[in-house]
């Protein structure tokens, strides 16, 4: 689905953000990019999304991405404060020129999917952080993209909200058979969400390790408290420390 080969990114000013990054993502796979702040994981995601151009190397989507073929959720909910939830979710459809009636129907469908059907007329400032993030996720899903890119979307949320959203995300992605690239700095979150974790180190950003999580895609109740989960987290913490050293 996504192939990245020997990718490098040097920012104007000479900072090397990424060097020699290669990775693949298969259809329907959930892959996490895990690393400390400043390791270039967000840059890698933005390059994959086509928002910034790489300095060297190759990024290839198969089949090639169409407009609206990719949903992105940023660190901030980035909602338009002057528009209510429903109109925020409609945004990608409005850009594509979809008619008002269909826009409305699909936005409501997505809001229902993220559990906000009763908040369609609410303005962002009246919503909690977690609800705003749900609106942002609904907006990313409204074009029914095969791919979802998430850039530390839950970093600013409290632990309970975060776990709830993790569960919801797994359910939504499983249902829609989405391919997901998930950027995070939380080892636990990466273990809980992904099938594969790519660990990164900084200066310049590079992938140093790959860990496969062998657990059912639909996480069993209590997976968060299982010895298996704890073992993975421990293994990743050790690897992260080794990478940073």
């Amino acid at each position: 689905m996504l192939t990245i080969e020997n990718l490098g990114k040097v920012f104007p000013g000479g900072t090397a953000a990424l060097a020699g990054v290669s990775m693949q993502m298969a259809q329907g796979e959930i892959v996490s990019l895990l690393g400390p702040s400043g390791c270039g994981k967000s840059t890698l995601l933005r390059i994959a999304a086509g928002l910034i151009a790489p300095s060297s190397g190759r990024v290839e989507w198969t089949p090639p991405l169409e407009k609206g073929g990719i949903g992105v959720v940023f660190q901030d909910p980035t909602l338009m404060p002057w528009a209510n939830s429903r109109r925020n979710v409609e945004t990608p459809l409005r850009i594509a020129g979809v008619g008002a009636r269909e826009r409305h129907a699909r936005a409501m469908e997505m809001l229902t999917l993220v559990g906000l059907e009763n908040f369609s007329e609410a303005y962002p400032r009246t919503l909690s952080g977690g609800m705003k993030m749900r609106v942002s996720i609904a907006r990313a899903l409204v074009t029914r993209p095969p791919v979802l890119l998430l850039d530390e979307p839950f970093a600013a949320l409290d632990e309970i909200t975060r776990q709830q959203l993790n569960d919801d995300l797994l359910e939504i992605c499983g249902k829609a058979r989405l391919s997901v690239l998930f950027v995070t700095h939380s080892a636990a979150e990466a273990v809980y969400l992904s099938e594969r974790i790519l660990m990164m180190r900084a200066r310049p950003g590079a992938i140093v390790n790959e860990i496969r999580i062998n657990a059912p895609a639909r996480r069993a109740e209590g997976f968060r408290h299982s010895p298996q989960f704890a073992a993975y987290c421990g293994q990743i913490s050790t690897a992260l420390r080794a990478a940073a050293a």
Partner: peptide, 13 residues
Amino acid sequence: DHGLLDLYRLYGA
């Protein structure tokens, strides 16, 4: 908001 500008670029606005 730069995030919104990115979003619009992403969808080819």
